[in-house]
Write a protein that binds this DNA or RNA. Structure first.
Length: 286
DNA sequence: TATGAGCGA
């Protein structure tokens, strides 16, 4: 014998409809024998027509894990003690079933990979060099200082040549509207030349470690000047405290001077410590 | 203790 109970439309729908709506209330019928619950609701469709929505649920017949089945048999209590079994649509929304993707089901993953937007992103590189389209930041580009990757599209160069005008600078770079440093103009960007004046002349940089904490730049200058002319001294310090970190970089103009400095100063007792000097490696990720 | 600071898309 069906046991009927009237239920209010869901809270969200009440708000949506406003106070003075005249839709019949939803009702919920439960058939003990067939363990079937029927929920009847009235709502508006997309054309603002009243429609009746009937949904039937089979209760307790679905296969679920024993622990869940047990939980479903719990007696309802409090203000829900008279509710029919199963969720009460006035305070519970049943969403669609959600299937979970487990990592170990490799076959499914394989087939879904094409549809997964994340998977698409994976192959797509996040950074693309503006100079050579490579997979690195523009500032890290090996062609950064030549301002042109090898063989820039030659035909577009030809086309532009007809226009005549300014003859200065690397043709490709200037047409692209990029800044060309003075030393690069008028054919100055030949490979060999650029490589020389490149990158803080890393080739002649040495690193000094095990410096006493109270060492200052002037001390280093004094210490290394005998070996040749120094272009730059960097004493690593804590940015906040200004505390020396105990190592420094010295740039010589000539690599051979740097080499002699390594030979001469490495192992040199300085203050209360013994200095260690070696070739510096470029910093960062490159 | 230790390979610099900063700029991004």
């Amino acid at each position: 014998m069906p046991e009927d109970s009237e239920v209010k439309p869901s809270w969200a729908e009440q708000v949506e409809w406003g106070e003075d709506e005249t839709l019949p209330p939803a009702r919920e019928d439960y058939d003990e024998k067939t363990k079937t619950k029927t929920v009847t609701e009235y709502t508006y469709n997309s054309e603002s027509k009243k429609v009746k929505v009937v949904r039937t649920y089979k209760i307790e017949t679905r296969k679920v894990a024993p622990s869940i089945a047990k939980r479903k048999a719990w007696k309802k209590f409090g203000s829900a003690s008279n509710d029919a079994p199963g969720p009460n649509p006035s305070n519970t929304i049943m969403s669609e079933e959600t299937f979970m993707q487990f990592v170990h089901s490799k076959e499914n993953l394989q087939t879904d990979a094409e549809e997964d937007p994340l998977a698409k992103l994976k192959g797509h590189k996040i950074v693309s060099c503006r100079i050579c389209k490579g997979d690195h930041w523009t500032t890290k580009c090996p062609y950064k200082d030549t301002l042109a990757p090898p063989q820039e599209n030659a035909d577009s160069d030809k086309a532009k040549e007809g226009e005549g005008g300014a003859s200065a600078g690397s043709p490709a770079a200037q047409r692209l509207g990029k800044y060309v440093p003075p030393n690069m103009r008028d054919g100055g960007n030949r490979r060999g030349e650029t490589m020389m004046g490149n990158r803080r002349d890393e080739a002649a940089t040495i690193r000094v470690t095990n410096l006493p904490e109270d060492t200052i730049e002037a001390d280093l200058q004094e210490l290394f000047r005998p070996f040749g002319s120094i272009s730059r001294i960097y004493l690593a310090k804590d940015k906040a405290t200004g505390q020396s970190k105990g190592f420094a970089f010295i740039n010589f103009h000539r690599r051979e001077d740097a080499a002699r400095a390594i030979a001469g100063v490495s192992g040199f007792g300085y203050g209360h410590l013994i200095l260690n000097v070696e070739w510096a490696k470029p910093s960062g990720t490159q």
